[in-house]
Computed example of a mutant assay.
Amino acid sequence: MNSDLKNIIGSNIRSFRKKHHETVTSLSKIIGVSQSTVSDWETGKKMPRADNIKKMANHWQISTSQLLTNYQKLNKFYNLIADHIDDSFTTKEINDILNYIDLIKRAHKKE
């Protein structure tokens, strides 16, 4: 298993757990695993099984993709774009920017 993915998921689990003011112990009881298992997930030592990812997503009322996505990377990207866009942009200009981003993504998929 890709260690980057394990670290991303672990970081997200920790973030959601803390956001909901839960301890490792309380989350482990809710999911039905040991405390050490939750700790191993959060530190990237182990990968949670799909059924446990679904349990956590249901418990926190989020999508499973929210546990699997590197939001730190996305937030940096969003902030970079936001730093360059102000209220003077028209809707058409913002749509042009979004279309250009799609064009670049398509071009990179072909490579």
Rank of each mutant, 00 (worst) to 15 (best):
S3M: 08
D4N: 09
K6R: 13
K6P: 02
N7Q: 08
F16I: 02
R17L: 09
K18R: 11
K18Y: 01
K18M: 11
K19S: 09
H20P: 00
H20Q: 07
H21P: 00
T23D: 01
V24Y: 00
S26I: 11
S26G: 02
K29R: 15
I31V: 14
G32L: 13
G32Q: 09
S34M: 09
S34N: 10
Q35P: 03
S36V: 13
S36H: 04
V38K: 12
V38W: 09
D40M: 15
D40T: 03
E42N: 05
T43Q: 02
G44H: 04
K46P: 00
M47K: 11
P48A: 08
D51V: 02
K54Q: 10
K54M: 13
M56C: 10
A57K: 12
N58K: 15
H59A: 10
W60S: 06
W60E: 08
Q61W: 00
I62L: 11
T64S: 11
T64W: 00
T64C: 12
T64A: 11
S65F: 12
Q66A: 12
Q72D: 11
Q72Y: 03
K73N: 12
K76P: 03
F77E: 12
I81V: 14
D83P: 01
D83S: 12
I85P: 04
I85K: 08
D86I: 05
D87V: 04
F89G: 01
F89M: 08
K92E: 14
K92G: 05
N95M: 10
I101F: 06
I101V: 09
D102N: 10
D102M: 13
D102R: 11
K105I: 06
R106A: 15
A107R: 14
A107S: 13
H108G: 09
K109Y: 06
K110N: 15
E111P: 00
